[in-house]
Deep mutational scan, measured.
Amino acid sequence: KLETFPLDVLVNTAAEDLPRGVDPSRKENHLSDEDFKAVFGMTRSAFANLPLWKQQNLKKEKGLF
């Protein structure tokens, strides 16, 4: 399991300012399950079932792209 970080560490943070080991294209993977659901309004599995373009739009909207 990946290390999780608080939302404010990941949202609207440039790649070079992210904690070590965080993939800038997969910031959402480093949210706790609770934060993930609070941000996206759905579970990880529901998010994973969305088309890629919709996932990317949601990530942009939430500052996690």
Rank of each mutant, 00 (worst) to 15 (best):
Q55M: 04
S32D: 07
G21V: 07
E34F: 10
P24Y: 03
P24C: 07
L64E: 02
T4R: 08
A46G: 07
L64K: 01
F36E: 00
N57G: 11
E34Q: 11
S32W: 01
T4H: 10
A14K: 14
L10D: 02
L7Y: 15
W53R: 08
V39R: 01
K60H: 08
M42T: 03
T13N: 08
L2E: 08
V11E: 05
R26A: 10
L7F: 10
L58G: 00
Q56H: 11
S32H: 05
N29T: 07
L52V: 12
K59R: 09
N57Q: 14
E28K: 01
K62H: 11
V22Q: 03
N12G: 10
E28W: 02
D35H: 04
F36M: 01
F5G: 02
G41A: 09
S32G: 06
F5Y: 15
V22C: 05
T43Q: 07
N29S: 10
N29F: 12
N49Y: 09
E3N: 10
S32F: 02
G63M: 05
E61I: 11
V39Y: 05
L10R: 02
P6N: 05
N49A: 14
T4S: 08
N12W: 07
E28R: 01
P51I: 01
F40G: 00
L52A: 10
L52R: 10
L31P: 01
N49E: 12
F65P: 04
R44V: 02
L52S: 09
R44P: 05
E16H: 12
E28D: 03
K62P: 01
V39I: 09
D17W: 07
R44K: 12
G63K: 06
T43W: 04
H30A: 07
F36S: 00
R26H: 15
L58C: 05
K60R: 12
K37W: 15
N12E: 07
F40M: 06
N12Q: 08
S45M: 14
A14V: 09
N12P: 04
K1C: 15
K59M: 05
K37N: 14
P51A: 07
L52C: 15
A48M: 13
R26S: 09
H30Q: 03
S32M: 04
K27L: 15
P24A: 10
F47D: 00
W53I: 09
A15H: 11
R44N: 01
W53T: 09
K62N: 12
R26M: 09
L7K: 05
E34A: 13
K62S: 07
P6L: 04
Q56G: 07
F65Q: 12
V39E: 02
A14Q: 10
G21W: 07
D35N: 05
L18T: 05
R20T: 15
D8C: 13
F47H: 00
A38G: 08
L10V: 02
V11N: 05
S32T: 12
K27R: 15
F36L: 01
F65L: 15
D8F: 10
F47V: 00
K1L: 13
H30Y: 15
K62A: 14
P6R: 02
A14F: 08
A46V: 12
R20C: 15
K1R: 13
K62Q: 08
Q55P: 00
R20Y: 12
L18C: 07
K54W: 11
F36P: 00
R20H: 15
A46M: 13
F5N: 03
L58T: 02
D8L: 10
L64N: 02
M42W: 01
F65T: 13
T4I: 15
G41F: 06
L10Y: 01
D17L: 10
L50E: 07
Q55T: 01
F5V: 06
E16R: 10
A15T: 14
L10E: 03
Q56M: 14
L64W: 08
N57A: 14
T4D: 04
P24G: 06
D23L: 04
P19S: 03
V22G: 02
S45T: 14
V11G: 03
P19Y: 02
K37V: 15
L52D: 11
R26V: 06
L50I: 05
D8I: 09
E28L: 04
F36H: 00
G21N: 08
T13P: 07
A15W: 12
K37P: 02
G41C: 10
A15I: 15
L2D: 09
G63N: 07
V22W: 04
N57D: 14
M42C: 07
D35E: 08
K62T: 08
D8Q: 11
R26Q: 11
A48G: 11
F40L: 07
N49P: 01
P6I: 03
A48F: 12
E61V: 09
W53D: 11
N49F: 10
N57W: 12
P24L: 07
N12I: 06
F65K: 07
V11A: 11
S25N: 14
K37F: 15
A48K: 12
F36R: 00
D33T: 06
V22H: 03
K59H: 01
H30F: 09
S32P: 01
N29P: 03
L50D: 00
T13F: 08
H30C: 06
A38M: 14
K60D: 06
D23A: 03
K62E: 03
E34M: 10
D17V: 07
V22N: 03
N12R: 08
L10N: 02
K27A: 06
V9W: 12
G21D: 07
R44C: 02
K54A: 12
L2F: 15
S45H: 14
A38C: 11
L18V: 06
F47S: 00
D17P: 05
Q56R: 13
G21K: 05
K37R: 14
K60Y: 12
